[in-house]
Amino acid sequence: MRHLLAFLLKHYFILLFILLEVFAFLLIINNNNYQNSVILNSTNHLTGSILNTYNTAFEYFSLKYVNNELAEENARLHSLSEKSFLRTDTTFCYKDTLYKFISAKVINNSTNKRNNYMMLNKGTKHGIKADMGVICSNGIVGIVTSASVNFCSVMSVLHENSKISAKIKKNNQLVNVVWNNIDYKIGTIEDIPTQIYIHYGDTIITSGHSFIFPEGILIGTVKNYLTEKGESMNNALIDFSTDFNNLHYVYIIDNIMKDEQLNLEEVIEYE
């Protein structure tokens, strides 16, 4: 201990210098968008290629499971394919799809932190941009936060800032789905008006109001309804339909009309 103190005293000048520089760099990276994105992109590039190699090596072990999953997914898509067409009225059907699905592989994922991120093997080269939704065959997964050339990082639903606009399937009531760090299997729906009754097993789906996720993507089912006396809004717990601990292939959703929708919204705000 005394040696340590002597060492610190002897070299305090250079140690203080390093401390202040590290602090300054932390400030730079946290407060300046440009520097932050450069760091994020270059580290994305490096960690992405390492994790990608690791993943290719271990991919074979889960092939059987993945095959099953893909077959199920195919079946589901066959039965639902009409859903991705935009109907503006009953006689007119938009010729192209409104949402483009880009398949991607999860190469890094976490579920045990307060704020979880995952990395996918698709990037700007494949048309990925920030704020695209990510789903898997069972339900929603998260939102793309940044993309480098070959990879992108995704803010998982298991994140402090994640707030998904959702609705109760049976009566179309709008609610918000958040994650309160209980368990990676369990989410919370907030802001349920007290006059609405929710029962065990009710299905929660995306509302399609956010321009990120299409309408009707499964989020989960109600597990437990919490009523608090005197509160005007109630909360409920849901079981996520997505198994966040077992994600292999996901789909990134590109909303082709997003710019148009956002522009229109801006126009409304100005008026």
Partner: peptide, 17 residues
């Protein structure tokens, strides 16, 4: 430009002696 001038100034002060 939070931190940039601080980093440069600290470096300069470090070199001064």
């Amino acid at each position: 430009t939070i931190g940039m001038n601080a980093a440069a100034s600290v470096f300069m002060a470090f070199c001064r002696p």
